[in-house]
């Protein structure tokens, strides 16, 4: 089993490096990142550095599930499960904040970025942590390293067939038509990846460089999303930039489905019971069906976010201003 290296981090607080925050004499640490962004690697490092006990909070965590911070360092994963967006849903979080205030040991916690932003706005969560460690988007080089590490031998890289290496490419749009369903349309657009790579070295970019530049853009530098997109798009002995193609989802899933999606994106994994409380007056099955059809979430209970559907899900919520 290989150990995942610690990704680059940014530290907010009176420290500059992750290890500075861990070696400090006191103060709780929050590790904040987008879904699928390797928070685990940072927490693995914290656990081994501190010799800490590791606990993982599960979906629908209730008051009483917050660990006691008294018997040595604790690393707590997925603390965004400590709240629900309903009346009475903040009780477990309030318990955590009370325990943090009286903790006598080092505590390192991890949070989904959207939950963190929301809870910092409505519950002043950020005031409870002396150090906030965030994981910024990775560069194309780091995304390439991640893919190589996870897949070992990669296929050969080649130019896109029929187009070669060109600053013009095409994008696929799904346009909903009444009574005919969505129709895929490809439109020519400027190849942002080609132009970005060209601006970087002032030379015609190699196919490998273009592939990882595109993968980085599609995943917004998120290693988990990049890996999922790679797995979905690359199949065979040769990979070209054109193979990495996520159709642009333009249809809106509707109010109830978007409300459910907002909760799933912020919590990454939510029980159906919790989701039922989000849309008490609507059919949860219909809302989830609309999200599954668009590839945003998986089936099952708890409902989990799909990594390759995250960019589309973010776009839906952003259009509605439901992203925090």
């Amino acid at each position: 089993m290989t150990t995942t290296p610690v990704p680059p981090v940014e530290v907010d607080g009176d420290a500059e490096e992750l290890d500075d925050t861990l070696s400090a004499s006191g103060g709780a640490v929050a590790v904040v990142a987008d879904p699928f962004c390797d928070r685990d690697a940072v927490l693995d490092h914290a656990r081994s550095t501190l010799g800490a006990t590791r606990v993982r909070l599960e979906p629908a965590a209730e008051a009483g599930s917050v660990p006691a911070f008294a018997d040595g360092p604790v690393v707590a994963d997925d603390c965004h499960h400590l709240y629900a967006r309903r009346v009475g849903g903040f009780d477990p979080l309030d318990e955590l904040l009370d325990r943090l205030a009286s903790a006598s040991c080092r505590v390192v916690t991890s949070w989904n970025r959207y939950s963190w932003n929301y809870l910092s706005a409505v519950r002043d969560l950020d005031d409870a942590f002396r150090y906030v460690v965030t994981l910024p988007p990775l560069s194309a080089e780091r995304i390439a390293t991640t893919i190589r590490r996870r897949h070992g031998t990669l296929p050969a890289f080649a130019e896109s067939p029929g187009r070669g290496s060109s600053p013009v490419t095409a994008a696929t749009y799904e346009i909903p038509l009444p009574r005919r369903g969505p129709v895929s349309v490809r439109l020519p657009i400027v190849d942002v990846d080609y132009v970005t790579a060209w601006l970087g070295n002032r030379d015609r970019p190699a196919p490998e460089e273009l592939v990882f530049q595109r993968l980085t853009r599609l995943s917004n530098g998120n290693p988990g999303v990049a890996t999922a997109v790679w797995d979905a798009c690359v199949d065979g002995d040769v990979v070209t930039p054109a193979d990495l193609d996520l159709p642009v989802e333009r249809t809106d899933p509707g109010d109830d489905a978007a409300a459910v999606l907002g909760v799933v994106v912020a919590n990454e994994s939510v029980t159906r019971e919790e989701l039922r409380a989000v849309v008490p007056d609507a059919s949860l099955d219909r809302a989830l069906g609309a999200l599954v059809d668009r590839g945003f979430v998986g089936t099952g209970d708890p409902v989990t976010l799909s990594p390759d559907g995250l960019p589309g899900a973010i776009a839906v919520l952003d259009r509605r201003r439901w992203l925090w």
Binding site: R86, V122, A259
Partner: peptide, 16 residues
């Protein structure tokens, strides 16, 4: 407290 939580957990709230 109930009214405040109903506001804070509404999907339409501008949290900033």
């Amino acid at each position: 407290a109930v009214v405040e939580e109903a506001v804070l957990t509404s999907r339409h709230l501008a949290t900033d």
